[in-house]
């Protein structure tokens, strides 16, 4: 007698994604999808997707979506949430989108304490455009625009967005997670679920930074890329809760 032990989340649409083998976007989408289902938000949620690899997120997740201009997702989400305060609203942004071109929009959304959630996917590189250096690219890391490795004298050092944004009073909850193994993945799921839960309580801006892979542009196998997240990225980008004002507001 057969029994269903695992199936596609109802929070995902029944389509194949375009993501590369070993890319973690698919896993992160799944965690959001499960969160939407478990909190019964598929019928009300509005997502805002970035310019970058996740530009088609609206085709994969089972909720309404808006595609924003590069970096502007937090402004677009502000327009949605302010006019529809009871809808769960979230942005899904990569590191080029959020930490480079969209630095002003994410900073000011956090300053205003906008009551939406941002899922920040940090893979330390520009994926869609072909592996250029991002503000999050690690020191010494090679990219197509830092071919000799990121040099602190020339490029400065990478930015820790979760810590930076947590200095702002409007930030209610910030946690950095990864999905490179099962224990991490469960923690990531809890963080995403908590962010959406807190958003619906209206306490402020909620932010989950997810360290992610880009095997294609890193020039690694999927397994080696996952290992690099755990061994190398987490040294500069420590995992854990950075800010949580729950109960203090």
């Amino acid at each position: 007698m057969s029994q269903i032990v695992y199936q596609r989340s109802a929070g995902l649409q029944d389509v194949e994604t375009h993501y590369c083998p070993g890319c973690h976007h698919g896993i992160i989408h799944k965690l959001i999808a499960e969160t939407l289902v478990e909190l019964d938000l598929c019928g009300t949620a509005v997502g805002v997707c970035p310019v970058g690899c996740a530009v088609y997120a609206g085709n994969y997740l089972n909720c309404d979506f808006i595609e924003a201009a590069h970096g502007r997702a937090p402004a677009v989400a502000t327009g949605v949430k302010r006019t529809h305060p009871y809808l769960p609203v979230f942005t899904y942004q990569g590191d080029g989108d959020l930490a480079a071109i969209g630095a002003a929009e994410i900073m000011h959304a956090a300053m205003r304490g906008e009551r939406f959630t941002t899922i920040f996917v940090n893979n330390a590189i520009y994926g869609m455009t072909g592996g250029q250096m991002a503000p999050t690219t690690l020191e010494g890391q090679k990219s197509t625009t830092s071919q000799l490795g990121r040099d602190r004298q020339h490029h400065g050092l990478p930015v820790r967005m979760a810590e930076l944004l947590s200095t702002l009073d409007g930030m209610a909850y910030a946690e950095r997670v990864c999905v490179a193994d099962m224990p991490s993945l469960h923690k990531a799921k809890r963080a995403i679920k908590k962010a959406f839960t807190l958003q619906m309580q209206g306490i402020g801006f909620t932010f989950v930074e997810v360290l992610s892979t880009c095997p294609t542009n890193w020039g690694m196998t999927p397994v080696a890329a996952g290992q690099w997240v755990k061994d190398t990225m987490t040294k500069y980008y420590p995992l854990g809760v950075i800010k949580d004002v729950e109960g203090t507001v």
Binding site: R72, A75, G79, R82
Partner: peptide, 26 residues
């Protein structure tokens, strides 16, 4: 109704984009 003083003209027009995409007169 909704009034937001944005951080820039760029943010303001993108807030309009968001509100308009969500069906509002913005």
């Amino acid at each position: 109704r909704v009034f937001v003083q944005a951080e820039s003209e760029i943010a303001a027009i993108n807030m309009v984009y968001g509100a308009a995409a969500a069906g509002m007169r913005a």
